[in-house]
Design a protein around this nucleic acid. Structure first.
Lengths: 77, 77
DNA sequence: CTGTGACTTTTAGTCCGTT
DNA sequence: AAACGGACTAAAAGTCACA
């Protein structure tokens, strides 16, 4: 059982989804109306983002906000 | 049609779930390690809570964090 | 028990860089 | 393209008195 913190869950989800879309951190930041360094920081699990920011990132990634905080599905057959 | 903001979604979900558990704002605040007035403020959609706070409230309510930001299900059967 | 405005402290989020 | 640091500003956390 991993010491899975909210920040780590978000970080992993953002990075995974962003990579799957082929966007760079810069491009994502731009879409979400944020700074490049901030997205970088979020993906390193250093940031405790606000609700509005969470939704903004979700929109920029084209996913539902709930996907960003969904716990990693360990046993997905 | 709804000008459904993240704050409103959270507010509605917290209040609905809290009421369904029979907890008072005070009791919930206590469980979540927060102040009574803070929960009140969240339920009035005045607060743009952080990720950690979101998770803390979810734990206190005994639900998954994703439930707190799930959009209201309009056409539920 | 809950709403509300005012308030101080802490942190989210920006922007300048270098590696 | 991305990690990382410092300094800064905007906003969230957290509390209180009173309705």
């Amino acid at each position: 059982m991993p010491s899975t913190t909210p920040k780590k869950i978000l970080a992993a989800n953002v990075r995974r989804i962003r990579n799957s879309t082929g966007l760079s951190q810069e491009a994502l930041a731009d879409r979400a109306g944020m700074h490049r360094t901030y997205i970088s920081s979020v993906e390193r699990a250093e940031r405790n983002v606000s609700l509005e920011t969470l939704f903004a990132i979700a929109v920029a990634l084209g996913v539902d906000p709930t996907e960003l905080i969904a716990a990693p599905d360990d046993g997905e057959v």
